[in-house]
Design a protein around this nucleic acid. Structure first.
Length: 270
DNA sequence: TTCCAGGCGTATC
DNA sequence: GATACGCATGGA
């Protein structure tokens, strides 16, 4: 059963949510701007909105520091996908032995509803890269702009002006993505309206965006839960457990399954 | 020093 | 369509 309830306590919001784990949701490779500032607390951003969130001692209870009810409902309720019932997803996946184990171990994982442009540009940076360095490059970008820049903010950027990022060969891909959005050739609303397959084709018009980066953007930035990003880790899962493809029970929620499997295999279950 | 990281573009068959 | 290789950077 899904329990999502919240109330105002002083300057904070207290959330009751049985299916949320901060490590599994904020530090699982789907978002790169969250930092664990103490064992139970994360600090980070969605667009220009800053948040400190704590996992309280009581099980399934969280504190959103200095957040009004209005802000919570307008921003964070959607960002954390709090209207979704992940216990239903886990129940569906439990038909498969490996997915049952992975989802059981990572049942506090939620697919964040992130900004389309941020996920596209962030996952361009992610290619052939490791998570700590992805975070480092993105933090340099945000420090430079005092926030995560929009494509419009970046429309004058070149490979040379981006050299401070130390993004290597990815800089030219970022420039190409900026160009395609700032000219209006691609729009977030346009992509959102398409089927997952058609949306993937649109995103892959960007130089440096292949199937994997496109699927990450579709899953994390457009909340298309049937997108299934296959990185090196998920490819290992597939070859070991699913050489003939994903089981039926993942239909429509392949992306959520992927996120459980990604964490499962990375933690050493092989 | 060599290998690897939430891959992709290009050349070649 | 599939396979091989180079690619910037930095940590292990």
């Amino acid at each position: 059963m899904n329990i999502t309830d919240f109330f105002v306590q002083g300057d904070d919001i207290i959330l009751h949510q049985s299916e949320l784990d901060l490590d599994q949701t904020l530090d699982c490779g789907q978002a790169f701007r969250w930092e664990r500032i103490s064992p139970d607390t994360y600090h980070g951003y969605y667009l220009n909105n800053e948040l400190t969130i704590s996992d309280l001692p009581e099980k399934g209870v969280f504190r959103f520091h200095n957040v009004t009810e209005e802000q919570f409902l307008a921003i964070w309720f959607d960002y954390f996908d709090l209207s979704a019932d992940y216990s239903e997803v886990i129940k569906a996946l439990s038909e498969d032995e490996t997915l049952s184990a992975a989802a059981g171990q990572y049942s506090g994982t939620r697919i964040l509803r992130q900004d389309p442009w941020e996920t596209i540009s962030s996952f361009i940076i992610s290619q052939n890269n490791n998570i700590p360095r992805i975070k480092l490059i993105i933090s340099r970008l945000c420090e430079h702009y005092s926030a995560y820049p929009t494509f419009d903010d970046m429309k004058a950027e070149t490979v040379e002006t981006l050299s401070y990022l130390r993004a290597g060969f990815r800089a030219k891909y970022i420039v190409d993505a900026v160009l395609r959005f700032s000219t209006g050739e691609l729009t977030a609303d346009g992509i959102k309206a398409l089927t997952t397959d058609a949306a993937r084709d649109e995103l892959m018009k960007i130089k440096g965006v292949g199937p994997k980066v496109a699927d990450c953007a579709l899953l994390f930035g457009f909340h298309k839960l049937d997108a299934f990003p296959k990185d090196v880790w998920v490819k290992r899962v597939m070859s070991q457990y699913y050489p003939d493809g994903l089981p039926e029970c993942t239909k429509g929620i392949e992306g959520v399954a992927q996120q459980y499997l990604f964490q499962y295999i990375r933690s050493g279950n092989r």
